[in-house]
Design a protein around this nucleic acid. Structure first.
Lengths: 330, 330
DNA sequence: TTGTAAGCGTTATCAA
DNA sequence: TTGATAACGCTTACAA
């Protein structure tokens, strides 16, 4: 392995000069810089990042913590962040928490030990108290996305959960559904509680009663979606806004099993627009998140040391599961 | 930050002793080790991995290179590998190549610079020549999975592509389909060429002719699946074994668009068993890969310094898209 | 603009 | 079984 000392010897200068030249310090003659860079290239020099990190106390790795990488939303966020960060000379270290607080702290710990330049994170559902996160981070900058804690400092990138849930619910009502329930996620997450608020506001603005017995909390899985849908149907629901696609999927399966037909007897809108949403039959209406863009924004927030909160709009994809108007026309 | 020097001072020994005690060297008195470990804990010591890596010339990070993390197969492999590696004290650095050779070399480079302990990798489709991979790796151990180059040294974990493609094709034939084509992947990948061989053998063993015009190469995307299916139908095909689920999906859509009904007029079996396969209507028969297990095996191959090739069986999930026999009974 | 020198925290080698 | 010492390769005050 060729080191800066080798280059220095070859050029009759000192390692400090080479170091400065290679790391873009202004305190080097332009000519020297050129010579050094050329020699470095011709000798096949590569900076030893371990040594560099040790000395600087910081690496050029950015850690990304997500609940699960196989959720399309999260893998797309990662892709977006990567596209910006690689460009800027950073590498990305991905950790998944599987929604577990323990694993989340472990991941933060690992990243801290690797002295990452920044952590981009969407916290686990299990995590209710943000304090240990702040503590584990020390002075490492944090950018939160999707699931954020307001009380933690640093940039945040979120969806317009309130507005989009409002729009989705209004869409159901506009299609003639009159008793609209909701499969709400874990309300300790602001992303989910905001969706519930939007849902509620839509009911109120439409002159419909908000009925707590039609709100199914902690419901984001296929299994819990199935159960909730059956209860909802019992309770006289004729539509559901679901804060996730997997619970919407479970709900659709349960309703079909019960012999109900969508969108005729029942309407559903999900959230996340997973690939399967458009492929199912009937296809599932869903709120699409601009995941890739969210990743890009989060990465840029770090690069520009922003502390701002950015809101990204979701997009309502109207498909068969909720579109009774177009069915009637057929 | 507390260092081994601090601990050494506190105990009246030298840093060397502390280092040995903490890294499990046998050349330390049992009693000393205990004292050191206790003091380290009570002082809140954490090993500086940068310094340690610099000195040892090796980190405790394992790099994983995959074409795309959002493919369920790959994210599950990553999950499996993680589960083993975290247990063993390694962290995982994930890179995606987006099937591009350039990005793949870049990733190898990054991992090499971070002096990873090992690289687990499934190569990009674009990559035909394994030589640059070997060169970029230097002396870092390599474990290949799914898409492997035989000519590279090191452990390999693969699916039983030949046998499973054979079984899938036989299944179609057993359901009465008589002109079975195939959506083959990129044949420079052994995983895909093995599937083609299995498909071919199944035809021959069934007394059916192997017809090159029914073999659609480089077909793994939804778009190319659509085109190929239309050509196949023109050519008189009544069934397709597809080496991927996305191309199978495209094919199903094209056939439906053409007015053909599955499984009555046409049979399809895909490969990968993506979530959407079971959700579509008609549901898509597919070869499921034991992705999580594959990741576990790959990780263990590294931990145990194995050089072996492990074959993991795929599993044929028979669903509506190919199951004409059960339909007839209805 | 360049050189000098002192580490960053750890580990390996050798000697005691 | 432990200690002394050097080194891993790089960065950065400070001095020249």
């Amino acid at each position: 392995m060729v080191t800066i000392t080798d280059i220095a010897k070859a050029l009759g200068v000192t390692p400090s000069t080479v170091s400065r030249a290679l790391s873009g310090s202004p305190r080097v003659k332009e000519e020297t810089r050129r010579t050094v860079e050329e020699t470095a290239r011709s000798m096949g020099y590569e900076r030893n990042v371990m040594a560099s990190n040790l000395r600087r106390g910081r690496s050029s790795i950015v850690g990304i913590i997500v609940p699960r990488i196989y959720r399309e939303f999260f893998s797309n966020v990662i892709g977006g962040a990567e596209s910006i960060l690689n460009e800027a000379g950073y590498n990305v270290l991905i950790c998944q928490t599987h929604e577990r607080r323990e694993a989340e702290l472990q991941a933060l710990h690992t990243l801290r030990k690797n002295q990452v330049a920044c952590v981009l994170m969407s916290h686990a559902i299990e995590t209710e108290d943000p304090a240990p996160i702040a503590e584990a981070l020390g002075d490492i900058p944090l950018v939160q996305f999707d699931r954020v804690f307001r009380s933690l400092p640093g940039a945040k990138v979120v969806n317009d959960n309130y507005e989009s849930a409002y729009a989705a619910t209004r869409h159901l009502i506009a299609n003639g559904y009159r008793r609209v329930g909701t499969l709400a996620g874990h309300l300790c997450c602001e992303a989910f509680s905001d969706r519930l608020r939007g849902y509620r506001k839509a009911l109120e603005d439409s002159g419909l009663a908000y009925d707590e017995s039609l709100v199914f909390q902690d419901c984001i899985l296929r299994e819990t979606g199935w159960d909730a849908a059956l209860q909802a149907a019992e309770a006289g629901c004729d539509a559901l806004y679901s804060a996730g696609d997997f619970s919407a999927l479970g709900a659709m399966e349960a309703l079909r099993w019960k012999g109900l037909s969508l969108p005729r007897d029942f309407g559903i809108v999900g959230t996340a627009d997973e690939t399967f949403a458009s492929l199912m039959s009937p296809s599932l209406s869903s709120l699409g998140q601009h995941a890739f863009e969210m990743g890009r924004v989060a990465a840029k927030a770090f690069l520009f040391r922003s502390q701002a909160t950015t809101v990204i709009s979701m997009e309502l994809h109207i498909r068969e599961s909720s579109n009774r108007n177009s069915i009637c026309q057929k």
